[in-house]
Design a protein around this nucleic acid. Structure first.
Lengths: 193, 193
DNA sequence: GTCTATAAGATGATAGAC
DNA sequence: GTCTATCATCTTATAGAC
């Protein structure tokens, strides 16, 4: 019974998350959320006084949940290659469900219009991802199941941005298969010969 | 003296292009353009009655210019590796000049809010790029200077989306070096051993 | 081709009743 | 915690003078 956030608060963030992933930060509005939840705009302002605060709360929750998802992958799977496949699956499922973009991929596009605090959260998300990938990639190389040249961090940076780009471009073809084939290819290349 | 477009028309598109690359399709307005050019909003509507028509005109010009830039690369450089380096340089210079995003990378993020006609132009741009890259990559492999597995089209698709993603993520770090290092690594991997 | 003036609607946000 | 009512401002877009 710890930290029971108002149910409405969470539902607002749920809707806001999908709206941003679909429309972008500047194209979604309090009116959109209000309509989706059948409440009034003023109610949303009660929970999140400003759009910037809503965005920050959303990013905090998103990063926490994403971190938990990564931890779950490590708990359930031990092989580095499997962990990477599950990781790519996280992105793929977002694209498959409504042709959405990674929240932070979208916010990276909206970057120059974001409040400073949200900008820092976006970078933080990418940092989190790279750190996790770096660890998994290094583990895979040590175990001999993954192969790549140079520092693991570099490979992690490249894999993350390649997946983000694959999502971005695939979105405009409205065809998630484009992403999955691309992601599969990226992972295949990392498999030790 | 053929097809002398009104100078104002071109300047409007110049400003709109930068604004979209920086802010996105939904975050830029006729008022922004008017202020930048010190003209009134009504004047812009005279040249481009609706935002959708402005967007389409912009995309048409952008694709044509980009095509010319690719042709120029082929004219000036013969080695496939050099052509690819010049290609990546096109992206890099956009990021370096004002931390902008590829116009179509940005529009891919804004995709679900775009008029149908503009969506088709965005896909067309990606198609153009992949076709060009496919040709250069195939040429490089034939000549033995470039190495990759599978069809050239697949390698082209991957390179394009990786560069788009590298731009997107690098943007949020406000550091173009992040992109150039990433791009360098991608090209290095394509160099025949 | 550019301007002033204006429209109709959306935006983020607030005050105050219930 | 939710609501109605309202705000100032911004949005795209149009009418009509110069």
């Amino acid at each position: 019974m710890a930290k029971q956030t108002s149910d409405t608060s969470d539902r607002i963030l749920d809707v806001a998350e999908r709206l941003i992933q679909t429309l972008g930060y500047n194209a979604f509005s309090y009116a959109d959320i209000a309509k989706a939840l059948n409440i009034r705009k003023a109610s949303i302002h009660h929970h999140f006084p400003t759009k910037a605060k809503l965005g920050r709360a959303l990013m905090a929750r998103y990063r926490q949940r994403f971190g938990e998802a990564l931890a779950a992958i490590e708990r359930r799977h031990t092989a580095a290659a499997t962990r990477l496949r599950q990781y790519a699956g996280l992105f793929q499922s977002v694209l498959e469900d409504g042709n959405r973009l990674c929240l932070c991929g979208m916010l990276a596009a909206d970057f120059s219009t974001l409040p400073r605090a949200i900008r820092a959260e976006v970078r933080g998300f990418f940092d989190d991802n790279e750190t996790w990938l770096e660890r998994v990639l290094a583990q895979g190389r040590t175990q001999g199941s993954i192969a790549f040249d140079g520092p693991a961090r570099r490979a992690a940076t490249r894999l993350l941005s390649s997946l983000e780009g694959a999502m971005l471009v695939s979105r405009s073809y409205e065809n998630p298969c484009r992403f999955s084939e691309l992601a599969q290819g990226l992972l295949d290349d990392l498999a030790a010969a």
